[in-house]
């Protein structure tokens, strides 16, 4: 290709990226300006693309309802507890699959565990309701969501951790055994530090899933426990939908995952590339 043709290709690629960025960023932009508008301006037939009246007070307004803060706290509790549990179980199960169940049985078991993540969640919606209804703590509790989300997060955690463990050479542990470590000590001191970036990525994925989940949370909980996605519709009281409050609250709810992601991105990149690049 001559340089002219090359330049055209580069420009076409850049334009393509530009359109893509516009598509992804425009909704975010519209959220932000909507969150800053008064209700009257939102309801106009021709929407404004820059607020005529700024109403930053919206962000204070959403917390007039004490349920708003509580829903965020509930979400943090559910997401964090579920992540901790998924990671704990997934790490141990992944290690066992990687090291001790290497044959056909192990392969199939690992695939079965992952396949739990593949069917449509709605399929188990009703059975789950009855299952949790039968527990002593009932459907509307932290435990029901924390345990229910394991159905989705544990297979993912197990599978990914298994892949990470498979990529850490067994000989490192064996060298430690010969130097006098017990298998348990070798696992914690030698192997776990190597997969730590991977664990951070897995934790992140689990946490975000539990943070965003709406379907099950809406069906099972709503009174004692109310996570933020379930709380959002309460801004649509009566005939009037307070879109500015909905958007402001959604923006606030976006912050924790974004902050986590930025804080941990160093580990994320390393963790997600663990399976790809050995070494």
């Amino acid at each position: 290709m001559d340089t002219n043709a090359k330049r055209i290709v580069v420009w076409l690629i850049l334009i393509g990226f530009g359109i893509w960025v516009l598509f992804t960023l425009f909704p975010l932009y519209f959220m932000i300006i909507t969150a800053l508008k008064p209700v009257e301006e939102i309801n106009r037939m021709v929407p404004t693309f820059w607020p005529e009246t700024f109403r930053p007070d919206n962000f204070r307004g959403i917390f007039a309802d004490p349920g708003s803060l509580k829903s965020l706290i509930d979400s943090v509790i559910v997401a964090s507890a579920n992540t901790a549990l998924s990671l704990f179980l997934g790490t141990l199960a992944g290690y066992a699959l990687a090291r001790y169940l290497t044959g056909v049985v192990g392969e199939n078991l690992a695939f079965f565990i992952l396949s739990n993540r593949m069917f449509p969640p709605v399929a188990i919606l009703i059975p789950m309701f009855f299952l949790f209804d039968a527990t002593p703590w009932g459907t509307d509790s932290y435990w029901s969501l924390i345990i229910l989300y394991l159905v989705f997060n544990m297979p993912l955690a197990t599978w990914l951790m298994m892949v990470f463990f498979r990529d850490t050479p067994r000989e490192l542990e064996e060298a430690a055994y010969l130097d006098g470590y017990t298998p348990l000590r070798a696992f914690f001191k030698v192997t776990l530090p190597l997969v730590f970036p991977g664990m951070v990525s897995v934790a992140m994925l689990c946490w975000i899933f539990a943070w965003n989940e709406y379907l099950f949370a809406n069906l099972l909980t709503g009174t004692t426990v109310k996570t933020f996605p379930v709380h959002i519709p309460s801004f649509a009281a009566g005939s009037q939908t307070l879109w500015n409050f909905v958007m402001a609250f959604s923006l606030v709810a976006m912050l924790p995952p974004v902050i986590l992601f930025i804080a941990l991105r160093r580990y994320m990149v390393r963790g997600l590339s663990l399976g790809v690049v050995k070494g």
Binding site: P169, E171, L172, E174, A175, Y177, L178, D179, G180, Y181, T182, V190, P193, L194
Partner: peptide, 18 residues
């Protein structure tokens, strides 16, 4: 292995990367 009092150098080195 930890009860046999042996030391081994591995063909693949097995050095602790951290």
């Amino acid at each position: 292995p930890e009860q046999r009092n042996v030391a081994m150098a591995f063909e693949s080195y097995a050095l602790y990367p951290n």
